[in-house]
């Protein structure tokens, strides 16, 4: 990257490092950090949406919908999450291909599962075999996002369900006494008030989501774990201008520090958010703020 990087062998340690850390592959490594942040930025709202739907289903008056909501929450929470990640990535991929297969090749007569193979017609392949590399990557990433959203949606559903139940019942009764319909009560009274009860759980969930991002590696994404393993491995001078020994330990130390810093920053930000949300609420926290202000 720098002009003096032409002949790395002749450089001092510090200059060598500055050249080494700005090579093209390292840029991909830094891009992978953005990938993690991107995943978080996309997944968090989607998972919250899934969670909201799940919580609404779990407290629905309609039996089957309620059972569905409760089962969704219960199953995802009872089983190791990694198993879910590994499961959903294949299952989603196959489900999508199967649906396209049904739609695009109606006159296909062979069974889809033949022994150890899963065979759909050429047109149903996802992404299409001829698609450029970036489509494959985006498709993989999208599958990962949906998987994360399904798993974390269940966690969020559980938290939001608890938050909805924690809203004082008198509030809902008052709304009913004012002649609000159940729908109005839900949107105008319950939902605005539940956040403060749900926030401790949701901030915990955010921390957990941060800590779950390295699992992208298991889903076959070229994320920071992938690059740390690649870049850290022993390099001989035959293949690179920057030969070094086994540095994977140091790369993972860097990842460890990255996550610790990220956790710390999130903790501080969530604390601020909590203070804002408790403002004017009928909780001890809100009461303490009111006292301090007056």
């Amino acid at each position: 990257m720098f002009s003096y990087c032409v002949d790395p062998d002749s450089l001092e340690t510090l200059a060598w490092m500055s050249c080494y850390l700005t090579t093209g592959v390292h840029m991909s490594f830094y891009m992978a950090f953005l990938k993690v942040l991107g995943l978080l930025a996309v997944t968090a709202p989607v998972a919250l949406g899934f969670g909201f739907l799940g919580a609404m289903a779990a407290r629905s008056g309609f039996g089957p919908l309620r059972w569905f909501g409760k089962t969704y929450i219960a199953i995802v929470r009872g089983v190791p999450d990694i198993a879910f990640f590994l499961f959903f990535v294949i299952a989603l991929d196959q489900a999508l291909e199967w649906l396209r297969h049904k739609a695009l090749c109606p006159d296909w007569d062979m069974p889809i599962r033949q022994g150890n193979d899963f065979i759909v017609c050429q047109a149903a392949k996802l992404p299409a075999g001829s698609a450029p590399e970036w489509i494959h990557e985006t498709y993989g990433f999208a599958l990962a996002v949906i998987t994360f959203a399904i798993v974390f949606g269940a966690f969020a559903a559980n938290v939001l369900f608890g938050g909805m139940r924690a809203v004082p019942h008198a509030q809902l009764e008052t709304a009913a006494a004012y002649g609000m319909t159940p729908r109005q009560t839900f949107w105008r009274v319950l939902v605005p008030q539940m956040w403060v009860y749900a926030l401790p759980g949701l901030s915990n969930l955010w921390m957990v989501l941060i800590k779950a991002t390295p699992l992208l590696f298991l889903l076959g994404i070229e994320d920071i774990v992938y690059w740390a393993r690649e870049l850290g491995g022993t390099k001989t001078s035959r293949f690179t201008d920057y030969p070094h020994g086994d540095w994977r330990m140091w790369y993972f130390l860097a990842l460890l520090v990255f996550y610790l810093a990220f956790t710390k920053v999130s903790e501080i930000a969530l604390e601020k958010l909590m203070i804002r949300l408790t403002h004017g609420q009928a909780t001890t926290g809100g009461e303490a703020q009111r006292r301090a202000a007056s």
Partner: peptide, 9 residues
């Protein structure tokens, strides 16, 4: 920090 990274490290 994630347990996953702790294992790797």
């Amino acid at each position: 920090s994630p347990l996953f990274i702790q294992f790797f490290f």
